[in-house]
Nucleic acid binder design. Structure first.
Lengths: 353, 353
DNA sequence: TTGTAGGCGTTATCAT
DNA sequence: ATGATAACGCCTACAA
């Protein structure tokens, strides 16, 4: 069913049908009703090709995400965003990615300024520097630019959508997996490894989830929990890490709530004679972690599909702006449990390659 | 960059550019080269809206999959296929689903006939009745109708794409998970529960993978493996199942290579005093299995994203026929490890809802 | 071998 | 309040 057909059936012109469809007024009640009836009965759906052709709209989406070196976590969301752009550019979605330095607030504010100057039609934001991100969302609200959040959420923001993970639950899952590997009494060490001083809500929530599981399980009778903080690059951080890996001589497990568990794995590898029985659970399928998972030093990794997060974020703008569909306001991606035996099919698990 | 622009730059007409683009010949080498150069440099991409509008093609895709009752495995691939149709119908993809009875060869051949009469532009096939499916693929080849396979593969067929799982690896993973839960010597029972007599290659491969893991691990010293076959609905099948659940009085684990592990779980629940310590690992996130996973009677389920399989199968035809892109010839979906702690975010894990 | 014109369905503008 | 018409970019048929 086309507009032409509707017009013929209603004995009116294309223009009139168009005015009805787009509620532009200047149509008598009478004819409006007649046209609407026909549209209803005929189950009219606009031809998106014709629509796309004549409107010839294109949308500028700007993404503001942390920069990265090869193999680091933030490479993956970026990869997903770029892949989505490859598929969606022909539908009028144009992307600019801006990278900021997680360790530098000024870098963030600079890039945020730059982003606003672009006057984008939509923004993808990774609010890892929480306080500054909040300021940006306020400005975006004022400018009426819709934005999506990835990785972590800003509660009570009016983001178009949030795409990320449930960090608390991720921690619980980590605890469950670690406990399933441990058969004896001993100490579990929670090591937060970070490369900056920012307060990281995700890490905190994972740790809380981890403890929640332990304290509410039977394991707590046999387990002592110890927490450590390591700042990469500070003086003696490597010695401190080695200390943290085996704080007691009956350390049975280590949990690292960031993507940095490969540092622990490396440490264990170099002290293999004394540390080989320690079980390791961490997060994220980055190359360095995968290496130690394959070697059997890391027992489980928990994945949160970061590429998908990026992909879905851009795709949701396509759906919202181009297809004018509704998009889910909140999307938690599954927490994938990765081990040697199922690793191979996650490594190339990207949406619609 | 448009065809018009190319034509102007090359000092030729639209028609000539078009002939070059579509290799219709009747263009002098000279002008062809000139035009191709400009296309190359300008990175010309056809406007898909204009293209879609003028071609106004629509494609009929027919899917031939097993029928199902609510909550059964085959509901999920169908769900995925239907969801894809919802998103893709406006792009000219039309779907007909035909359902056959897995227990009836004649039902399959009938529906296969019906399918061929539809003269579809593409076929999605679940080759669970392997021998008959092969015959159908031959006919499709003759009719030059491209087909995609889901769930299980037909090696050496020239399917457009296969979308499914690595069943052998799935079995290995099941063994790994089961062993991680078991801390003492004992018997592991592999119970094949089926509702038909068909030879099921997937089950067989899962069992082989399972054994492969056990026999090549340290566990084999402590584990005795026993295999059972249960046919639902045959005389005494429930007693037989109860027998199979605890073939010895030190049964420590059970693996069910089909989606039927809920029958075992139910059996264990009714004999909880004697069987509560038995660990269970099975396949597929169907409602009945999920119920027992939540109760803690099933320890792990392995998922293979059946909705995704269906979704991707239809989407691959969209990409192939509408967008004229290449599609991957083989796609193994990840083997998801599901436990109480990460279940919630898998239950609504469907692509692009 | 090359060029031209008409039309796909929708939108928006201009004339009535 | 309504109708006619041009334009979007591409494809095809036909004319030169």
């Amino acid at each position: 069913m086309t507009i032409k057909e509707i017009a013929k059936l209603a004995n009116v012109s294309l223009g009139t049908v168009d005015r009805v469809l787009h509620k532009r007024g200047k149509v008598s009640k009478e004819t409006e009703k007649k046209v609407l009836d026909i549209i209803e009965k005929g189950n009219y759906k606009p031809n998106i090709y014709a629509r796309g052709l004549v409107l010839n709209r294109s949308y500028k989406i700007a993404a503001l995400v942390p920069n990265y070196n090869n193999g680091e976590y933030w490479e993956m969301p970026s990869k997903g965003i770029k892949m989505a752009e490859k598929n969606l550019s022909q539908f009028g979605i144009n992307l600019s990615i801006l990278y900021f330095d997680q360790n530098s607030v000024s870098s963030f504010t600079e890039k945020a300024e730059e982003l606003l100057k672009l006057k984008p039609d939509g923004v993808i934001l990774a609010p890892v520097i929480n306080f500054e991100a909040v300021k940006l969302t306020k400005k975006l609200d004022e400018a009426k630019i819709p934005f999506s959040l990835i990785d972590s959420n800003i509660p009570n923001s009016n983001a178009l959508s949030f795409i990320g993970q449930d960090a608390f639950q991720s921690g619980k899952l980590a605890a469950k997996l670690l406990c399933s590997e441990i058969n004896s009494k001993g100490t579990i060490s929670i090591i937060s490894i970070k490369n900056n001083e920012n307060h990281n809500k995700t890490l905190q929530q994972r740790i809380e989830g981890f403890k929640d599981y332990i304290y509410n399980s039977n394991f707590i009778a046999n387990i002592t929990l110890i927490e450590h903080n390591i700042h990469l690059g500070t003086a003696n951080w490597e010695e401190n890490l080695t200390q943290a890996c085996a704080p007691t001589n009956n350390t049975v497990g280590i949990f690292v709530p960031s993507s940095m568990i490969h540092h622990v794995a490396k440490c264990i590898e170099s002290n293999f004679d004394t540390m080989s029985t320690i079980k390791l659970v961490g997060n994220d399928l980055i190359a360095n972690n995968v290496k130690y998972l394959k070697k059997g030093i890391i027992n489980y990794l928990i994945g949160q599909r970061p590429e998908n997060q990026g992909y879905l974020a851009l795709e949701s703008f396509y759906k919202y702006l181009v297809l004018e569909k509704q998009v889910p306001q909140k999307k938690y991606l599954p927490l994938d449990i990765i081990t040697q035996e199922n690793l191979m099919y996650y490594n190339d698990d990207v949406v619609s390659s």
